[in-house]
Each structure stands twice: as C-alpha cells, then as structure tokens.
Design a binder for these strands. Structure first.
Length: 283
DNA sequence: ATGTTTGTTCCGAT
DNA sequence: CATCGGAACAAACA
C-alpha cells in the first residue's frame, strides 16, 4: 500500500491544502499514543509538507518541532470529515484553521502499525540519515545504486525493500520494477552487473513516476485513498503484481513467497541468473 | 478457522 | 558483523 507514490501524492496534496493553516487542536482517539510532545504543536502554523522515504513530514513555524506521519500498511491521512468516527479507525484528529474556516486533518489506521510522531530537528536529521537513495531525486544515480547493491550479500528483492539502500520501494513497485528489468526477485545482488543494475534503477524510477502520475495504487481492500478519499489508479497498470499472465509473453505468472512476502514474476522474462563460480567463492 | 495482507523493527540464529 | 527468518505490532476478510 502506501509506498513512495502514495506517500508522495498525500504529501504534495497536503502541502497545497494545509500549508498556512494553524493547528488549533490535536486529539488522540481512544488510547492511541502519539509519540513525542504534541502539545507543542498547538497554535503553531504549518509551513510546509514534504516526504522522507515513506514518511510524511509536516513542518511548522516552530524551528524545532516537526510532525511526522508514517502510514505503514493501513494508515490514511484525510482532510474530509469521516462519516463514522468509530467505524473508520480514526486514531488522531487535528483541527486546523485559516482565516475563519476550520478543517479536520484525520489520521486513521486500521491495523495501527503506522506512527504519528512529534520530533525535533536533530531527530529529523537522524530519520533522514536512516535512508538510502531517494530514487526520484535528481542526485540519485545508477552508480550509487550499483555501489549500494554490491555492498550487500542478499537477494535483489531484499535489497530493493531495504530502505537503507533505496528509499520508497515496497512490495508492489519493487515487483514491477524487477519485472520490467527482467530480473528474478531471488537473484543475488552480487550476480547483478552494472548494466542490469542500471536498467533496474531506470525501471524503478519509471514505475515510481508512473505510480505518482496515477496517484498511487488502491488494492481490492481499498485501504489506500488520497486525502480526499479518492482511489489511486496505478493498479490498472500493474505490470506483474497480482497478474495471472505475463503481459509480454503470456506465460503464467509465478506467485511465490519470498522473504515472507508474496512475490510475482514471469519465469520466462525474468530468467534465473546463475552466479559465476568466481563470484560464488566470494559469498 | 487459519492464512493472507501492505511496512517496520527487533531478536535470536546462522 | 551481515544477514536471515520469524515474530510482533492489530485488524479484517475469505
């Protein structure tokens, strides 16, 4: 669910919608715990909304106070009034005002794996440093990506989901990127040469950008919606994720549990790559 | 009813 | 030390 494109969509819409608003009130629902001192936010003004990896970063005019929201799997951020507060997993209600109008900012999360945290600049810096390459940043390069991959002794699927290597990919976009690059999820990173890594880096950027254009993916469970409650459309363009037949060669898609996650790949278009003996000895 | 589902962290084993 | 596999977090659905 929320991977880079979904979080990007939410953060950029939020920026347009709530920047310049004052936080009137912060109210955890039930015994939901916000980490950090959220009382500091009251009467502060929202100045900007950005994204770090899959985190939504809400900056305020307080120089040392930042609100960070991570949606994990089932988190939602909404600026519309929920129809049913008790039935929609509402965990935190913020009230924002600008001029004379008051609008809600809702954090909802069915499974409560998500996090709402209030942190300072130093912690924000730490958060930033946890993550690897931001794939859609202009400073990201295939060289850096290849170097990061070489440093790990694991399979490519693992590496793509490892946020300290590349930030923002999750199971869906990683699957599609590997498919477009013709790389099988179980390929060892050390068996991937520069050309293949470079191709994979391009396809990763491609699917992430397409995801952003389509405003994210909404799976059949409908958990992901944007801040207005609208579904994304990237699921209509899934390449291999949740597909039955390969869109290229029509071969039956293989569904397999890899690293505890459902993985889809085309056995023909994503062939097994044998690690050469010289490399194997290094493992 | 048990298995499955997106993300992350942490622990013990390898 | 790097990595893995599994568990845990909580909830709904087939």
């Amino acid at each position: 669910m929320p991977e880079l494109p979904e979080v990007h969509t939410i953060a950029s819409d939020l920026k347009k919608h709530i920047a310049g608003h004052t936080i009137l009130d912060v109210e955890p629902v039930g015994n939901y715990k916000i980490s950090g001192d959220y009382s500091k936010l009251i009467n502060s003004e929202i100045t900007n909304v950005t994204r770090i990896a899959k985190n939504i970063v809400i900056e305020t005019n307080l120089p040392d106070t930042v609100l960070v929201i991570h949606l994990a799997m089932t988190g939602r951020v909404l600026v519309t009034e929920p129809l049913d507060y008790s039935g929609e997993w509402v965990r935190v209600v913020f009230r924002l005002s600008k001029d004379t109008t008051v609008i809600p900012l809702i954090f909802s999360d069915m499974r409560m794996f998500g996090k709402v945290t209030v942190i300072n600049r130093e912690e924000l810096e730490k958060l930033q440093n946890k993550y690897g390459i931001e794939p859609i940043s202009p400073t990201a390069t295939a060289d850096k990506f290849f170097e990061a991959l070489k440093s790990k002794n694991t399979i490519i699927k693992n590496a793509l989901l490892d946020q300290s290597i590349v930030a923002g990919l999750g199971n869906i976009y990683a699957s599609d990127a590997m498919f477009l690059a013709g790389i099988r999820p179980e390929t060892m990173t050390k068996a991937i040469n520069y050309e293949e890594a470079s191709k994979l880096f391009e396809t990763a950027k491609q699917v992430l950008k397409e995801g952003i254009e389509k405003r994210g993916s909404t799976l059949p469970d409908k958990m992901y919606v944007d801040i207005f409650g609208n579904e994304g459309k990237y699921q209509e363009n899934f390449k291999i994720y949740m597909q039955k037949k390969c869109p290229t060669c029509k071969t039956g898609v293989v569904y397999k549990r890899i690293q505890g996650r459902g993985s889809y790949f085309c056995p023909k278009c994503q062939p097994i790559k044998i690690i050469e003996a010289s490399q194997k000895s290094l493992l």
